[in-house]
């Protein structure tokens, strides 16, 4: 239940960017969206958030179509972290995190105690408490990502939609962030490029290819050498050596090249 997509499609310029995808995460689950560039992951997330209207199919929140729930009510439940966030406004870290409280505030109300508490909790969970005064424009890409995630947490969502949140992050912050998302009580849908991170943190994976869901299920069932070859066109070895017996994917170079020879040539 909670946030669910039934057979959604989105058309742009005569092309189906998302083509009949269904998604029904259980509350608290972390769902990984996998797929090559341009497979429709970002668009699907936008459809789920209600930022874009579906061409066909329906996205529901607790069984009600998003359109009926209303923009503001959706934003109180569903938080989105986009891949790119840019602004010309001179904001501090705290200013950005506070944006997350907008859906919860009345038009004329100032920040209340709950707003303060949510902002404080969000910055503590993302370890930004000592950087609140820092200007947004002085942050690195990874720091900006963390600030946007803090903003999303400040929304106190029950569903969290993340578009490649580990982009720009170093290894430690990648692990920390996904652990935060996966361990928290929120239902999360995360578009990811890193198959191993997806295998490690997601309860359920959906693999998109050219707008269609080509595989769905637990990581152990979905991530196979055949699927990686079919979707990404890459050879790989999948073993059950990940944490807790989850799959671990190791990529192999293309068949034609012989690694030892090229290594010798370059040296």
């Amino acid at each position: 239940m909670s946030l669910s997509a039934r057979n959604v499609a989105w058309r742009a310029g005569g092309r189906l960017v998302v083509d009949g995808v269904s998604l029904d995460p259980r509350p608290g689950q972390t769902v990984g969206l996998l797929g090559p560039n341009g497979s429709g992951k970002s668009t699907l997330l936008r459809l789920l958030a209600g930022i874009r209207a579906t061409s066909s199919g329906v996205v529901t929140l607790d069984g009600r179509p998003l359109r009926e729930v209303g923009r503001k009510a959706v934003a109180r439940r569903v938080a989105v972290v986009e891949q790119h966030a840019e602004t010309g406004v001179e904001l501090t870290v705290e200013d950005v995190v506070r944006l997350g409280r907008i859906p919860h505030r009345g038009a004329w109300a100032g920040p209340g105690a709950e707003d303060e508490a949510a902002v404080r909790e969000a910055v503590e969970r993302t370890r930004l408490a000592d950087r609140l005064d820092q200007p947004w424009h002085s942050l690195s890409g990874g720091e900006r990502q963390r600030v946007q995630i803090a903003r999303a947490l400040a929304q106190r969502p029950s569903e969290l939609l993340l578009d490649e949140p580990t982009n720009h992050l170093d290894v430690r912050h990648q692990l920390e962030l996904l652990a935060l998302v996966a361990r928290g009580p929120v239902t999360a849908v995360v578009a990811l490029h890193d198959l191993n991170l997806a295998a490690m943190f997601c309860d359920h994976l959906v693999v998109l290819c050219q707008g269609r869901a080509v595989a769905a299920g637990p990581p152990g069932e979905v991530l196979t050498e055949e699927l990686v070859a079919q979707v990404y066109g890459v050879r790989s070895v999948v073993t059950a050596e990940g944490p807790g017996g989850r799959p671990s994917v190791r990529f192999l170079p293309e068949e034609e090249t012989e690694p030892r020879q090229t290594a010798e040539e370059t040296s």
Partner: peptide
């Protein structure tokens, strides 16, 4: 788009 995600019509 970010505004829409924050509940703005």
């Amino acid at each position: 788009e970010a505004a829409a995600a924050l509940g703005v019509r």
